[in-house]
Design a protein around this nucleic acid. Structure first.
Lengths: 206, 206
DNA sequence: CTCTTCTCGTACAGTGGTGTTCGAGTTAGA
DNA sequence: TCTAACTCGAACACCACTGTACGAGAAGAG
């Protein structure tokens, strides 16, 4: 028994849609694999199927019983990670002063990035670019909407492409995660630093 | 003959230091391998030794005749790429208004990032973190010095860690390279966007 | 309790990379 | 021209990983 317990799954495992409902132990296995996948891949994006199976406390063959290939598992892990994160992000209050809303959104997003870590990076190497794009669509739309609203109010700058401003946000969060992982930045300082930096880029034209 | 000519090397290949000087064809091979390494790894960071050998127009065994392992080659490629870039960066005028100096430095750095691309990313996966750090020391020192000077003049903000401000510069440049490669940002727009963004972060406190 | 589903160890084939050895052929350099 | 240095293809051992097959056994569902 390589791992004592794969951490209890918070959300119920996905139902198999078409066919007969899965047996309870199968649903438990899937949840454990997905959980382990998020945790292991966040630390080591090139982890093997055996690594993930071991972390889930499950046989390697059992993983293949539920996911036909490594890419298939990766897709499922990323989808679940993003979905979970998106649920949290959906609760962020984006009304009121766009600057304050941006700060709230960044704070919540940072917590998700810190949790998910490099899972997206793992996916980038295996999944199609378009596929990754589609999975990120929901969180990205939220940011874009906030940017657009702030621009209408004259709060956010208009002299740089919107896509660039959005990507600055992503880059600084991902970059902060790297800095924290490397020990060059205190975890507690990360969110304020990201907030101050993104706010500066989005609001300080000239 | 997979590649017609591995592009003429601008700088002379490194001398073998201790032992007898290498024969001319050996020096040519090493230069071709290093050149090919930069170009191939910039596009595909996980390229194999065979890929690099083919791009260099050289047998795979010949690569091993000069570099004992993949990590060894990677180290040499990164060292050369950074050294070449650093020569260019050393010519940038960093005197005068720190803001203008920063813009000049960013413009020159961006050209190097665009050229070297993902070579550093390739190294990150294989080389020790400390080793990568040491290789980046020279370019990083230049940025840090400029930041320090600007701070003394009251031009650059002091309310965020210097290390963070430096990393923002790196992140936005690397991020811009990704955006350009993905076709989400025009290459011509990259440098102005980076400049404006970094300047905003470095100067716009509050 | 019984049938069905699922687990899981072992074993296997296949793939794609690394690094080495050998020997024949080529090339630089004195 | 002669020799030492270098190239290079082929072949090899080795390793880590992926994905498949089989069969015994455990566990859920009714």
């Amino acid at each position: 028994m390589p791992s004592p317990s794969p951490s209890p799954s918070s959300s119920p495992p996905p139902s198999p849609a078409g066919s007969r409902p899965l047996r309870a132990d199968a649903r438990r296995s899937i949840a454990a694999i997905l959980d382990a996948g998020i945790h292991v891949l966040a630390v080591r994006p090139d982890a093997s199927m055996a690594d993930i199976a071991a972390a889930a406390g499950v046989g390697r063959v059992t993983v293949y019983a539920h996911f036909s290939s490594r890419a298939d598992l990766l897709r499922a892990v990323v989808a679940r990670a993003i979905t979970e994160g998106d649920v949290v992000l959906a609760q962020v209050d984006l009304s009121g002063d766009p600057r304050a809303a941006l700060e709230r959104l960044i704070l919540a997003s940072w917590e998700q990035i810190a949790r998910i870590g490099a899972v997206a990076a793992a996916a980038a190497g295996v999944l199609e670019a378009e596929e990754v794009r589609r999975l990120h669509a929901a969180p990205a739309a939220r940011v874009e909407a906030l940017l657009a609203r702030g621009r209408e109010l004259g709060v956010f700058r208009e002299d740089l492409p919107a896509a660039w401003l959005v990507s600055v946000l992503h880059q600084l969060m991902q970059g902060a995660a790297v800095e924290v992982a490397a020990g060059r930045l205190e975890a507690a300082q990360a969110a304020p630093a990201i907030s101050a930096s993104v706010l500066a880029v989005w609001t300080c034209a000239r």
